[in-house]
Design a binder for these strands. Structure first.
Lengths: 248, 248
DNA sequence: CGCGGGTTTGAGACGTGTCAACGCGTGTGG
DNA sequence: CCACACGCGTTGACACGTCTCAAACCCGCG
C-alpha cells in the first residue's frame, strides 16, 4: 500500500460526479467536495483495504479500481456482500460511528481517498446538501444489498450471473467506465463471482458459457462484453431503478 | 386499519428502549422521544402497512406485532428482506428522502407509530443524540440484511432456519418478548419463512421437523420454543454481534 | 357440515455442489 | 533458458440438497 497526499485531478471528479447524480450541489459545495479527501492510498490487487474490526476513522471513497466487501463464514468461505466501484463510498459505518463488521479487499489495483471525519463534519455543516447526497448513496447501497438478496433467494444461476453483469454494466456505465459495444473491465475471478452469488466456481463457469452460447455475454481475460444489454436485462428481469436515489 | 391519536403508554416505551440500547439519551431527549409519535395505526394481520412506491411521509415505528418488508420477483413470488419487530423503524427511506422501494405487510395484528417529518426535524435539532441513535438503528438493519445474505449465500436449509430462529429469539428477547424457557410467539407461516430464506414451504417444514428431532427447536401454533438456545446458536454459527451498534 | 388455509408426507425430477483431472499462461528460481 | 509451481479456467462423472407435484390431514370457521 502506498500513501500520498497529492491527488490526480481525475479522482476528485469521479467522487463529485457520483454525488451530483443523487443530489444537486452548489458550486461552493462542489468545490468543497473536490477538496475533501486529503489522503490517498493506492492498493495493488487483493490487498486488504479495511480489516474487520479495525477501527480506523475516516470516510473512504473509492476513486479507481475495484474492491469488494465480504463476511466470513465459519468454515472459511466468504460471502461477498458488495462490489465497490469508483465513486462508491467503501463503507458507511462512519455515519453512525459504528465499526465496520466486514473486510474490504481490493480486486484490482485501486486508489482510495480518505476524508478525515472532523473535516467532513465541518464541510457538511457548511453544506448540508453534501450530507444529503452521502445519505442517498447509503440508501442506494442498502438497496443494492437487498437486490442481491433477491438474487440469492429467488433467482437461478443463469439469472444471478446475468443480473450481476447487468448491474455492473449499469453502474460502470454511469461512472463512464464502459466502452462502446458494451465492453468493460471486470477484474474478477470466477470464484469471486461465485462467492458473491452463492455459487460454486464450477457452476459459475458453466453458467458463463451458457450466457456466451446464448450470445448475451462474453467474459474473457477480465473483459466483459454485453452485445445486447437490453436482451440480457429482459432475460434476468434487471430493473435498474433500485440503483437510483429518486423514483422518476 | 384503525387510526388513533391516543397512545398506549407501553408503546412509547418500546420505542424509547430501543433507542436507549444503541445510544445514551438525556432525560429531556427521552421525553421528546416518548412524545414524538402523534399518530397511531393499528393493522390486522396481512394488511399492507406501506405500499411500494406510495410516498407517504413520516417515520414509521413498529410498536407491537410483527411485520415484514419484501420485494417482488417477476414471477409473482416474494423475497422477504426483513422482519420488523416492536421497536424497529419500518423503513429508513426518510433519512435520505428516498422513497421506499418495498412493500411492508403486517404478519400479525400490529400497531405502528408515525412521527411527522417536520416534527422529527425539530426534535433532532434540539437533541442530535436522537438522530445518532436512529442512524445506529439503520446501521444495525443494514447489518441484519447482510447476515441474511450470508445465510442465503452460504448456509444450508438447517442452518438458515436455525439461524433465523436464533436471530428472532435474540431480538425479541431484547424487546422483552421472550418468556421463560426460550418461548416466544412467531406468527409466521412456514411459507413466509421460506420466502425469507429462499426455501420452499415443503423444505422449511422438513427442516423444522429436523430441528425438532434434534431437540433444538419446537414450533407449533405460532409458538417457538428453544429449549437450548446456546446449542442451536453453536450449530448455526449464530453470533449476535451483528445486531449491536457497538463492538464491545 | 363443508370449506380453506396451513401443515405434513411421499415420490421423483432437477439444479447445483463436489471431486478430480487437465490445459494454459505467468512468474520464479535454478 | 529451462523446469517447475501456481492460479485460473475448463471439463466430466457423480452425489446430494432442494424443488415440484400431488395428496392427505388437521383445525378453525362460516
Amino acid at each position: 500500500m502506498i500513501e500520498s497526499t497529492s491527488p490526480s485531478p481525475r479522482w476528485s471528479e469521479t467522487w463529485l460526479n457520483r454525488l451530483l447524480e443523487v443530489a444537486p450541489l452548489s458550486d461552493a459545495a462542489q468545490d468543497a467536495v473536490r477538496r475533501a479527501p486529503q489522503l490517498f492510498r493506492q492498493f495493488s490487487a487483493r490487498e486488504h483495504v479495511v480489516r474487520d474490526g479495525v477501527r480506523d476513522p475516516g470516510m473512504r471513497v473509492m476513486l479507481s479500481g475495484l474492491a469488494c466487501r465480504y463476511k466470513h463464514l465459519p468454515d472459511g468461505r466468504r460471502q461477498i456482500t458488495a462490489f465497490i466501484i469508483p465513486g462508491d463510498v467503501c463503507d458507511f459505518g462512519f455515519i453512525s460511528d459504528s465499526p465496520v463488521s466486514q473486510d474490504i479487499i481490493s480486486l484490482a489495483p485501486s486508489t482510495i481517498g480518505i476524508v478525515d471525519l472532523d473535516r467532513l463534519a465541518t464541510i457538511v455543516e457548511l453544506y448540508p446538501e453534501i450530507m444529503t447526497a452521502i445519505l442517498r448513496c447509503a440508501a442506494i447501497e442498502q438497496s443494492a444489498t437487498q437486490e442481491l438478496l433477491v438474487s440469492l433467494g429467488g433467482r437461478n444461476a443463469l439469472h444471478r450471473v446475468g443480473h450481476l453483469l447487468c448491474e455492473m454494466h449499469h453502474r460502470l456505465d454511469r461512472a463512464g467506465l464502459v466502452r462502446a459495444g458494451g465492453v468493460f473491465e471486470l477484474p474478477l475471478t470466477q470464484s469471486e463471482m461465485g462467492e458473491a452469488l452463492g455459487l460454486s466456481t464450477v457452476h459459475v463457469n458453466r453458467t458463463i458459457q451458457m450466457l456466451r452460447r446464448l450470445g448475451l455475454a462474453i467474459w474473457r481475460d477480465r473483459i466483459v462484453t454485453l452485445p445486447d444489454p437490453e436482451s440480457l436485462a429482459r432475460l434476468c428481469a434487471f430493473d435498474p431503478s433500485y440503483l437510483k436515489a429518486q423514483r422518476d
